[in-house]
Amino acid sequence: MIWRRPQRRNDAIASSIPSGTSRISGCPGSRRRRFHPGNLAPPPWTRHLTRHFVGCTALLLLACQGPAQGAEHDVVVIANQGVGARVISHDMARAIFAMRLRTWPNGQAINVFVLPDDDPVHERFAKRLLNVYPHQLRLAWDRVVFSGTGQAPHPVDDEREMLERVASTPGGVGYLERDQLEDSVHVISLAN
């Protein structure tokens, strides 16, 4: 899949919508490609039929292939079941993962979990959901720790451990690829 820097507002929201609603928004690009044959200007009498056929095919493909192409590899923010928040703003997400925010809106302590800096999932999470680069996050952590204004996030080795630690830690927050999701955690959507 070609990586494109997301339009902050729309793509990032799309990529963090819970799985049940992600089918349509998951692959707008593939829908455009499906309509290509229609541009070859067939005879007028076939146009109506063609449009129907192409439209149906596109829908079918969207339903079957769409999620497999994009959404499964989307990274979503996950939180402990006890965390009340279901939607947070981008800025708040950035402040949480930059270790500047200490409590959830309900007053509960935030516990941040992160994958290693060079983990591809961490890279995608930082770039697509937070709009920052992994090296910027690392610098932000070093700065809060060594200036006495914050603590470092809890490191985890892989997505399995991420899921377990977020599920078992009150106030826990982290991120996962969508296909690694389990009911032990809930998804937090990012909005503006």
Binding site: R102, T103, A109, F146, G148, Q151
Partner: peptide, 18 residues
């Protein structure tokens, strides 16, 4: 050479020394 210790004794309080 630096050594840094931090602790959250209360959920909205951070104590840090270096």
């Amino acid at each position: 050479i630096g050594l840094n210790v931090s602790l959250r004794p209360l959920r909205d309080v951070l104590v840090s020394a270096q």
